[in-house]
Amino acid sequence: MIEQRTIHGGASDQEANHPAKSLILLLLLAFSGAIVLGAISVFIGLLAMGISAGNLGDALSVSTGNVGFLKIVQAGSSIGMFVLPALLLGIAEKRRHTYLDFKTSVNPSLWFMVVAIMFFAAPIFEQAIKLNEQMRLPGALSEIENWMKAKEAEQERLTNLLLSDTTYSGLLTSLIVVAVIAAVGEEFLFRGCVQGILTRWFKSPHTAIWITAIIFSAIHLQFYGFLPRMLLGALFGYLLFWGKSIWLPVLAHFINNATATIAAFYLKRQGKSLDELDFSQQVPNYLYFMSFVLTVVLLYQYHKIATQQTTRSYGKTLD
């Protein structure tokens, strides 16, 4: 990431700019945004779907909830928790740091390389999912494991409900909520803000990328998908670190979510469950090796092109 503009002053300036304060401010903004926008989206959802306030509990239930209502609430909550806090932090600290630099130029070939990377890396993430699903905790931690399984099942029911509409209008709204808003919001917050703050804190972009990826995965509370989501987060982090534009990881995130949403949509239309969204048994083992090699080659080329672009734009690499 292009390093944030920093006021170089005395000790008092250094203390005022401590990354911990930026992180606390971001957390407060995210917490406040989630509450305020969540409440507003519930009100809008009740009006739009014609649901009485007395039936709010049923409408929010992951087993009997109203799909349209839940999508409205999900969209509002995501904007409040991810999009607005990132934008507001950028405004609040614009004189000291730049978290979301929308003016960074991007070599056109990088857009195509992001698409190719996400395509060829898919089998790697599929294997990571399989590996993570084999995770078992010691017997002494059985209560924790049961809680993790319960949270996983709850998230799975919510996903099934959100993607249960098999109309094309339902697909469009699902893409807006699950792919567009999630990709923009989570990348703005995690890669744009959290990764930027931690880079200042640890003075190491690589440390910041991996810690952000861990936080990004953990916050989803889907522990049996922790490994692949962490790897995805790290990939998104490096796409930003090398490419310098927040829109590059946003595109990658969108492709990941949109692909899963569309695949789930067509499975649902065929009367199949999301559990059948598994291609691992149809992929020969040698293709996993090819997937790994091609992904590494593409990432190397991405880094090379992005570095050349940075050198031309700024006279030096900013890695």
Rank of each mutant, 00 (worst) to 15 (best):
H8K: 15
G10E: 01
G10V: 00
A11T: 13
Q14V: 10
Q14M: 09
Q14S: 09
Q14E: 13
A16K: 13
N17H: 12
I24S: 04
L25D: 05
L26T: 04
L28S: 09
L29N: 06
F31E: 00
F31T: 05
F31V: 08
S32N: 02
S32E: 06
G33M: 06
I40C: 13
I40F: 14
F43P: 00
A48Y: 14
M49E: 11
G50D: 03
I51E: 05
G54Y: 05
N55D: 13
L56A: 02
D58W: 01
D58E: 10
A59G: 07
L60I: 06
V67F: 02
G68I: 09
K71Q: 15
V73L: 10
Q74D: 06
V83H: 14
V83I: 15
V83K: 12
P85N: 08
L87V: 14
L88R: 03
I91F: 14
R96T: 09
L100R: 06
D101N: 15
F102R: 04
T104G: 01
V106E: 00
L110E: 00
V115H: 04
V115A: 10
F125S: 12
F125H: 09
A128T: 02
A128Y: 02
N132L: 10
E133S: 12
R136M: 08
A140I: 15
A140D: 11
E143A: 13
K149H: 09
A150R: 14
E154Q: 14
Q155I: 11
Q155P: 00
N160E: 15
L163K: 13
T167E: 04
L171N: 00
L172T: 13
T173M: 15
S174H: 09
L175N: 07
V180L: 14
A182T: 15
A183E: 08
E186W: 02
E187S: 07
E187L: 10
Q195E: 05
L198I: 03
L198G: 01
K203C: 00
S204E: 00
T207Y: 05
T212N: 04
A213F: 07
I219H: 07
H220P: 05
L221K: 10
Y224C: 06
P228W: 01
G237I: 01
G237P: 04
Y238M: 00
L240Q: 12
W242Y: 14
G243M: 05
K244F: 01
L251H: 07
I255F: 07
N257M: 08
I262Y: 11
I262Q: 11
A264G: 04
A264Y: 12
A264P: 02
Q270E: 13
D275V: 07
L277R: 14
Q282M: 07
V283M: 13
V283G: 07
N285F: 12
N285H: 12
N285S: 14
L287E: 11
F289T: 13
M290K: 10
L294S: 03
V296N: 01
V296S: 02
V297E: 03
L298N: 10
L299M: 15
L299D: 03
Y302W: 04
Y302H: 06
H303F: 07
H303R: 12
I305N: 01
I305D: 00
I305Y: 05
T307L: 10
Q309R: 11
T310G: 00
T311R: 13
R312L: 12
G315C: 06
T317Q: 04
D319N: 13
D319Q: 11
